[in-house]
């Protein structure tokens, strides 16, 4: 079997496992019982796992969508002639913000935005913004300046240069940034449940409080599985775009 076929098989098995684990109670029970034969309480009863998954995905989708849009706009703005002065600032800020612990962002956000869903989404948004901005800047900057000049020289307007040359040529790098942003957010979103945002963090926190490793693992396995599937999906999306490593021969 080729490595590609092996990967495809692994991905399908993983997806199947994830679906069964989340939606078939008996399957999940079986897996957890195998892992924790002595644990009496294996299934978190207060909220069903599919509900937690949906809450989790809602937080991630909203925050990542906003981060993607805003990050793209910022990245494009600071690479325009008019916004170029802000380029170093945008780079520094996004690098700096990435060093902030997520818990600190939450702690800073909830006095302003209250408990629960909204401050979590805000924190995830800030976190998801950075890879998108960074990759948008790097992607656009990496487009060969001679190709940009050729485009201008053929009579493209600034907007046409952006949409017909710069974005298509940097799309792969930008999508990679969005991919990183979403993967980070899927993991980080679990922390939102500490301020009552719901999501897969809920069952993890419950597990920690009650010293129930089965609960912790239920949340962790599910979040990791979702991250895997999304990562795989975006890996496929990236291949749709022009690969900047393919340089023109001269």
């Amino acid at each position: 079997m080729t490595s590609r076929a092996m990967r495809a098989t692994f991905q399908i098995v993983l997806l199947l496992f994830l679906l069964l684990f989340v939606y078939m109670l008996d399957f999940r029970l079986g897996v957890l019982r195998l892992l924790f034969p002595l644990q009496r309480e294996l299934i978190y009863q207060r909220v069903t796992l599919p509900t937690l998954v949906i809450q989790h995905l809602q937080m991630v989708t909203i925050s990542s969508a906003a981060a993607t849009i805003v990050g793209l706009l910022i990245g494009v703005a600071v690479t325009r002639p008019a916004g170029r002065d802000f380029l170093p600032l945008a780079r520094d800020l996004s690098s700096f913000a990435q060093t902030f612990p997520p818990a600190a962002v939450l702690a800073l956000a909830f006095p302003v935005l209250g408990f629960g869903f909204r401050p979590t989404v805000a924190a995830l948004f800030v976190f998801g913004l950075l890879p998108v901005i960074n990759n948008t800047i790097s992607g656009i900057e990496s487009v060969d300046s001679r190709i940009v000049e050729a485009s201008v020289g053929q009579g493209m307007t600034q907007k046409q240069v952006l949409f017909r040359t710069e974005l298509p040529l940097s799309a792969r790098v930008i999508v990679a940034g969005i991919r990183t942003s979403i993967i980070i957010n899927i993991g980080t979103a679990t922390i939102g449940s500490t301020i009552g945002a719901g999501g897969l963090g809920t069952v993890i926190i419950a597990g920690l409080v009650r010293n129930n490793t089965a609960f912790v693992l239920t949340g962790a396995i599910t979040a990791a599985g979702i991250a895997f599937v999304v990562d795989w999906l975006f890996g496929r999306i990236e291949t749709l775009f022009y690969d900047p490593r393919e340089r023109v021969t001269t």
């Binding site: 001679r146 493209m156 393919e246």
Partner: peptide, 21 residues
């Protein structure tokens, strides 16, 4: 206007000027 001018003038540079995508 620059864009109008440029569309009426053929511009050839070293081959990197072809859009690779």
């Amino acid at each position: 206007p620059p864009q109008i001018l440029r569309r009426g003038i053929g511009y050839v540079i070293q081959s990197v000027g072809l859009l690779p995508h």
